[in-house]
Design a protein around this nucleic acid. Sequence first.
DNA 1: TTCTATACATAGAAACCTTATGTGTCAACG
DNA 2: CGTTGACACATAAGGTTTCTATGTATAGAA
Lengths: 119, 119
Amino acid sequence: MSASSPNRLLRGTLDVLLLKTLSWGPLHGYAVSRSIRLTSGDDLKVDEGALYPALRRLEGKGYLASYWALTDQQREARFYELTPEGRRQLDLEVTEWNRYVAAMARVLGADGPRLAEES
Amino acid sequence: MSASSPNRLLRGTLDVLLLKTLSWGPLHGYAVSRSIRLTSGDDLKVDEGALYPALRRLEGKGYLASYWALTDQQREARFYELTPEGRRQLDLEVTEWNRYVAAMARVLGADGPRLAEES
DNA sequence: TTCTATACATAGAAACCTTATGTGTCAACG
DNA sequence: CGTTGACACATAAGGTTTCTATGTATAGAA
């Protein structure tokens, strides 16, 4: 069922994955990464070199807020939570993703090129 | 039905669009761009600054071959056609894309994070 | 004659991911 | 008791790919 090796990420898809994962409640970065890997069925791997800068970026945009706290194992970690603005952005990005997937499907599923406008 | 303004492309998705469009037969660059825009329902726009370098790149990899010829309107244009290697690559990239979409759907459609391995 | 579409091309910039590296803690295994 | 692996964070360097802007040139339409 799950893939042999996780895919590399498509650029631009990480943000929506992070926002979605945090929409269920606050998590620290490392847990977000693990959740995405597991939820995706081991198909999506978030490298730490992409993860932490992305979380900071989203915080800088006001989509996330962060605070330090202890994990279940009593370890210090920086937790992130979705802001109301982040939730709106999540909806936007999900909609855009679905639109993109549909558009790709139209091309990849077509049986020939369209060379001119039709009526 | 078609969108108000075409989306910007997600990095990494242009190649498969080009290969797919050329899988129906040779076309010149400008026609490829137009075909993608129309086939996608005006949701995908291929900027020329991405188009021509991408076609050269794919040719450099052996996925495309090119030649100069006249269009229907008797204008000089560089036509590209899929090589056998390009067709194999197309199949690969379509498979990868579908896998990616499925993985994204698992995350975006989930109702909670997965915090640990199961069973 | 000016605008739009056709048709190509490239340079510069920006964005974002991967790889590599670094710190430090903690539990488990041998 | 030492090493390995998971946890948890972070950043620098590098590469790829796209967007924006610009340039050339032809041709039909307004």
